[in-house]
Every structure is written in structure tokens, then in C-alpha cells.
Design a protein around this nucleic acid. Structure first.
Lengths: 152, 152
DNA sequence: ATATATGCAAAACTTTTGCATACAA
DNA sequence: TTGTATGCAAAAGTTTTGCATATAT
């Protein structure tokens, strides 16, 4: 996916640079959170993260780490299906993509963006935005449906 | 916008039919909530609704009304920018559309969908979904940027 | 009569914050 | 040594629920 980093090291370097640019440090906590997010593509909830991290990080610290990472442009917060936020590595790190969202269980899966279509959407976006007084910076598509784990 | 209702009466009728189909009644509360949502297009928060309704409906009743309307397919719940849900009349009532979202203040504005593009997106969606074990039922685009009320 | 709807108060949940302590540049 | 980061406990904010009462079919 365009913008993706081949190795974890490269990714961590990029994260460190962005944190530094924001006057923040790359601490152990933050490194682990990025690691957990990098493990699998797609947005994760805080519950899923604590889980993946083996409860190594207290809740408040985890939230603070995520807030800093978001502020530094390393992580994006989104989608709050049922009032729970989901966090994933930002597009500058993993490339432009969209989401398949299960309307039943809320599971979210990344899908690669489709080049031509995205360009067309961006053109449309700028036009629509101009009319409504928005400066459109990007777009995001949710493909909504049911996943195979939620039969019926 | 395809699917829109010309008069409030037509809209209320459609709502009543859907509620009835779900074994629910069209009560005064529910009628008022639909009225408030119909007044202006675009998703509203619960705070905005209580406001628009002049505090006529207790919070818990408002939440319950919205839950029933969502269940009946009359209202959609979405977006929860900063942990606050937004509700709007469902696409079966107001037609397919997308959203301009201000990344600063969270304001959301409806934009008409663009016919050709939406068809292309749906084709892509089905293909992508099939590969990942999702049955895709629809799509939704967020155009993210800054609105004119939030100068940089 | 019987199921559905409402209102109040209390609870549940996610997320944020105050403050004292620990750590890093 | 000065600013940044952490952890605990407490708070804040939104949304849900229990239960008794009222309403509609």
C-alpha cells in the first residue's frame, strides 16, 4: 500500500521523527503501542490494545500515549462504532486506504484504495467542498456490510 | 436527492409505516424527533436535539426514542466525533448522500451523492468485499477538511 | 387486558484530568 | 535542573437501564 514501510525499524524511525518534530519523545510505551498497531492493519479499540499489550500499560497511560501519537500525526482516531474509538497508524505511515465495516459486530478491515477512483473522488470532493465553504483535505470511504463471522 | 419526501406529511407517513412494521407506535415524542431531524438535513447530536426541542423531552426518553427509530430503520446513528453520536434520517427517507466533516469542530454537512461515481464505488465495493469475506451493502464517504467557521 | 411508552434516578462505560513521582535531555 | 512522562485515583461526559407509572391498542 503506497506509503507503507517495509520494516518495523523504518516505521519506528518515521514515528520517532514525527514525535521529535512535535517536541515529544519516543518512549517505551509509545513504541509498544505503535508496535501493536503495526502488527495487523486496521483500527483497534483501546480494549483490544490493552489486550494485545498484556495489560502492560495502565489505561490512563495508554490513552495518553494515543493522544500524543494522534497529535504528532502518527495515529488516527476514528469510527467510534457504539461509542468506542478505534485507532490506527495514520495514512502518512501506511498509505491511503478505506474500510470494510461490519454493521453487526463493528469489525473494521483495511482495503487498499483504488487509484483512479480516488483521484475522481478527490476532484469531486474539492468541487463539493468549495460550494459549501469547506476546504476538503481528503476523503475516506466506509464500505458497510456484514462480515463472514456474523452470519445471517 | 433521490428518495426524499416532498412534504413533512409524506415523511411522517413513511415513518409511521416503518415503525408499525417493527411493531412500534408513532408517538408524540418520536414524531417530534423526526420533525426536528427533518427540519435541516445533516446529522445532529443529542445535545442539539434537546436544544431544538426546547427541552421538551427528558434525556432518557430522547435516547430511547432515537434507539427505536434506529431499530425501525428510520434514523441512522453515526460518526461519533469526540465520543458524541450523531443522528440523521436514514437514506431510505432522504436519499443516498455523503458528508463533509470538519476535522476541527466536528460539524457535518450533507452533500448529494454523484450518480456515476457511486455506481463505480459500489462495483468496487462488492469486489473488495468478496475478497475479504464481507457482503457489502452500501458505502459512505466522508470528505474531511476544515469548514469556513474554523479558520486555520 | 395487554403490550408499549414514559420519566426519574441511578448505573455503566469510555475517556479525561489532578497531582505526586519518576525519568530523560 | 528543567521539561516531559507515568501511575493512581478521581472526575467528567455520554449513553443505558431498573422500576414504577401512564398510555394506547
Amino acid at each position: 500500500m503506497g506509503g507503507g514501510y517495509a520494516t518495523t525499524e523504518e516505521l519506528v524511525d518515521a514515528v520517532a521523527r514525527r514525535l521529535a518534530a512535535a517536541g515529544r519523545r519516543l518512549t517505551e510505551h509509545r513504541r509498544r503501542v505503535v508496535g501493536a498497531l503495526a502488527e495487523t492493519p486496521g483500527p483497534r479499540t483501546v480494549a483490544e490494545l490493552t489486550d494485545a499489550l498484556g495489560d502492560a500499560i495502565p489505561l490512563s497511560s495508554l490513552y495518553r500515549a494515543l493522544a500524543v501519537l494522534v497529535e504528532a500525526g502518527v495515529v488516527e482516531r476514528l469510527h467510534e462504532h457504539d461509542g468506542v474509538a478505534r485507532y490506527e497508524l495514520s495514512e502518512v505511515l501506511v498509505g491511503h486506504h478505506h474500510h470494510l465495516v461490519c454493521r453487526r459486530c463493528g469489525r473494521v478491515v483495511d482495503v487498499a484504495a483504488g487509484g483512479d477512483l480516488d483521484a475522481a473522488i478527490d476532484r469531486l470532493a474539492r468541487r463539493l467542498g468549495r460550494r459549501r465553504g469547506f476546504r476538503v483535505r481528503g476523503h475516506h470511504i466506509d464500505f458497510v456490510g456484514e462480515c463472514e463471522r456474523c452470519p445471517r
